[in-house]
Amino acid sequence: MKSPIVSRPARGLLFTLLALGAAAPLLAADPAPAKQAAKPAAAAASGTVLTLGKGKPTGQVLTRDQLRACLKEQPLLKASGEEVVQAQTALDARKAEVDKVTAAIATARESVDTTNEQQVNDFNAKVRERTALVDAYNEQLPAFNKQAEAYMGRKDAWQRDCADRPYTELDYFAIQRGK
């Protein structure tokens, strides 16, 4: 088979473009949609197979659109997880306050002189403080639980739909190029 005749300057330009990576989008054109849809399992043959998770690839190869959705969800999921951790940290700090006041009440209970009005008032103020802290903590719990459940649902869905599903390196790089 004869190779096409390419003049020396044109061949030099082609090699220069390849070396600079400028011709890569031209050489890596998307396959026809019909070909890609007709053989999803054969997509693995078109490049290195990878996964977004740490396990072995399982299930069918992700289509480019599925991979795009998984890649888009990944940073959102991470941010959502960080928000849940921050909310948990705030709840833990509030619970530590409750525990501190509860311990102070337990200690004061033994030494309060019930005939001394000032000591009784101070003790009752500590009890009211604890009640306010417990109420504030309990008010935050439903919102936190809802946030944590939503995160866990999204995380479970991502694990199921994306984590160890195989995808081709070619699709990944095509997405990175905006295709």
Rank of each mutant, 00 (worst) to 15 (best):
P4S: 11
V6Y: 13
V6N: 11
S7T: 12
R8N: 15
P9Y: 14
R11C: 11
L13G: 10
L17P: 01
L18G: 10
A19G: 14
L20F: 10
A24N: 00
A24T: 00
L26V: 06
L26C: 01
A28K: 00
P33Q: 06
K35Y: 01
Q36T: 01
A37K: 03
K39D: 06
P40C: 03
A41E: 09
A43V: 00
A44N: 00
L50Y: 09
L52P: 03
K54I: 02
G55I: 02
G59F: 07
T63V: 01
Q66E: 10
L67E: 06
L71R: 12
K72D: 03
K72S: 05
E73F: 05
L76R: 13
L76H: 12
S80W: 13
G81P: 10
V84Q: 08
T89D: 14
T89H: 12
A90L: 08
K95V: 00
A96H: 08
V98M: 14
K100A: 04
A106C: 08
E110K: 04
D113I: 05
Q118H: 11
Q118G: 12
V120M: 02
F123W: 04
A125Y: 05
R128P: 07
A132V: 07
N138I: 06
L141V: 15
P142R: 11
G153V: 05
D156M: 13
Q159W: 05
C162Q: 05
C162M: 04
A163C: 12
P166H: 00
L170T: 06
D171K: 02
